[in-house]
């Protein structure tokens, strides 16, 4: 293993995040705080408890997950797309670095950034609502697994994208709607049966549900189903990346 290379790529990406801290960290934290103020403090006080949890506290895991997913995808997609766009990718591809090391560097950095954002949002949430975390280890496990899995997805998008527009396409048109419809702001038990069954096809539901269970022991589906779905999604993303490097798709003619 070329650990020096993994560290070099990882630190390069982390330094880029630090250099653009306003865009990388402050912006998602600020927008999530607005959600807490509007849905948690203002509207939430007029909504009944869901699964025995105050509405303001109920949306905390979902909002963290919303940012975790979008930030993981955006960070990883931009991280690999920008060197392709600028042409500096030649250096990574000509270095004695394997596909695993490249992925560890780029995806590891993207996941680190999004997990940090998730933890900062979690800390910020304590300023607006009262809540406790029933299973902190499970909470951290879901945070890490989801951050890493969606960073893998972002990496794939960054390799696939041919322009900045495509880079934003999947997070905006796919991930954000799926997150909103995946139980971020409600329990799917509140939906009519038909829409409840449709919601079970949404993979993000399992992430939000598992994450919420770690907080309040209340979930739409079993914790083990959530965990299995997360791991399955990770395996699919890893297989896709393995295929990309094996065939050189979009990176090596």
């Amino acid at each position: 293993m070329n650990w020096h290379a993994v560290k070099a790529i990882y630190m390069f990406e982390i330094n880029r995040a630090i250099r653009t801290i306003g865009q990388s960290i402050v912006s998602p934290v600020l927008s999530t705080s607005l959600y807490f103020i509007v849905f948690g403090a203002a509207i939430g006080s007029r909504i009944n408890q869901i699964d025995g949890v105050d509405y303001g506290a109920f949306i905390v895991p979902g909002l963290i997950m919303l940012q975790l997913l979008t930030q993981s995808i955006s960070n990883a997609a931009f991280g690999i797309y920008f060197p392709r766009f600028a042409g500096t990718i030649y250096e990574v591809l000509s270095a004695p670095v394997s596909a695993v090391e490249i992925v560890l560097g780029f995806v590891g950095a993207a996941a680190t950034k999004s997990i940090m954002i998730g933890l900062i949002i979690l800390a910020t949430a304590t300023l607006f609502v009262d809540f406790e975390i029933a299973h902190p280890i499970w909470m951290l496990l879901f945070l890490v697994l989801t951050g890493f899995t969606f960073s893998l997805l972002g990496f794939i998008i960054g390799i696939w994208a041919d322009g900045f527009e495509q880079l934003q396409l999947v997070p905006l048109l796919v991930v954000t709607p799926l997150t909103f419809l995946g139980g971020t702001f409600y329990s799917i038990d509140m939906l009519p049966d038909f829409w409840r069954d449709v919601s079970l096809l949404n993979p993000v539901l399992y992430l939000v549900s598992g994450f919420r269970w770690a907080f309040y022991e209340a979930s739409d589906v079993s914790i083990f189903v959530s965990l299995s779905m997360t791991l399955a999604f990770m395996a699919i993303a890893m297989t896709a990346i393995w295929w990309i490097f094996k065939t050189g798709w979009r990176i090596k003619p």
Binding site: I9, N15, A86, A95
Partner: peptide, 22 residues
């Protein structure tokens, strides 16, 4: 092809690390 916002020292150090050198 260069990373416009990196310093000369950092970008050259990055290359050394990328090629597996401490």
């Amino acid at each position: 092809t260069t990373d416009a916002f990196e310093s000369v020292w950092n970008t050259v150090s990055f290359s050394r690390g990328l090629f597996g050198k401490p």
